[in-house]
């Protein structure tokens, strides 16, 4: 308890620690949520200080930066790390954390020997995947969970599939909405209680819809969304 280590949070937030102190404090951060939160909040404040030093960079710098960046690709997401993180928080704070990983890319596979109309045993998802105009839109969350909407305009069907999804908060439900062209949200179904790995066909006019969203609701049959979406899927 000599020299309370928590008191280093401010110096850490603005890089005012020596390398050794920094290493020690980062170890402390691993198991001190209070310091993590404090560091995050102080960094937000410190970031505002950069308004005081703003200065137009030389025009050539933009060119140099863009040229250098064109020679490297972004690192892929680190899946193992993401999975290890706080799951519950992600869904709640998750709107901003959501990242659309693929959008609007037709994944239709034309298989002339397999007429979809003669395959009634296929699931809705499978039928959509076989459609020429199939769309697959995925949203991934920081904890590694993924929600995917499959949609075919020609079939007028859409399905949501989830993978490894954290449960909604106690007593709450994930409700899926189709967004109509006028912006209205149409209730397309409430996810089953265990939505961790689910596949659910969406109710409504999937062909006309311009997007889908997921909200967290206490009433699974609510006629309108009562909260901000935790995930959005754009069809356009």
């Amino acid at each position: 308890m000599t020299d309370d280590i928590h008191s280093l949070s401010g110096a850490y937030a603005v890089d005012a620690l020596t390398d050794a102190e920094r290493a020690a404090f980062e170890e402390h951060l691993e198991h001190c949520a209070a310091c993590r939160d404090e560091v995050d909040s102080l960094r937000e404040a410190a970031a505002d200080l950069s308004l005081l030093s703003a200065e137009e960079p030389p025009a050539s710098l933009r060119h140099d930066v863009l040229r250098r960046v064109s020679t490297v690709r972004p690192e892929p997401p680190r899946l193992a790390d993401r999975r290890a993180r706080r799951r519950t928080r992600t869904w709640l704070a998750g709107v901003a954390a959501a990242a659309v990983v693929a959008a609007g890319v037709g994944v239709g596979v034309t298989q002339p020997w397999q007429d979809t109309s003669q395959a009634p045993q296929l699931t809705v998802a499978e039928r959509i995947e076989r459609a020429d105009d199939a769309q697959r839109i995925s949203v991934s969350f920081d904890d590694g969970s993924v929600a995917t909407v499959l949609r075919s305009e020609s079939l007028n069907r859409a399905v949501i599939e989830t993978s490894d999804m954290a449960p909604p908060p106690e007593g709450q439900h994930y409700v899926v909405w189709l967004q109509e062209p006028d912006g209205q949200m149409h209730h397309a179904g409430a996810m089953p209680a265990d939505a961790s790995d689910a596949s659910m066909p969406l109710k409504g006019d999937a062909a006309a819809a311009i997007g889908a969203g997921i909200t967290i609701e206490s009433d699974p049959q609510t006629p309108e969304p009562t909260s901000e979406p935790v995930a959005l899927f754009s069809f356009t």
């Binding site: 410190a46 690192e75 680190r78 704070a93 998750g94 954390a97």
Partner: peptide, 25 residues
């Protein structure tokens, strides 16, 4: 800095900080 932002963009965790704070950090 910009090279790092580009390469590590996937590490940004919106649950922890604003995008701008991450950039300036």
């Amino acid at each position: 800095v910009y090279l790092e932002l580009w390469r590590h963009a996937s590490r940004f965790d919106a649950g922890r900080s604003s995008a701008l704070a991450w950039v300036f950090t």
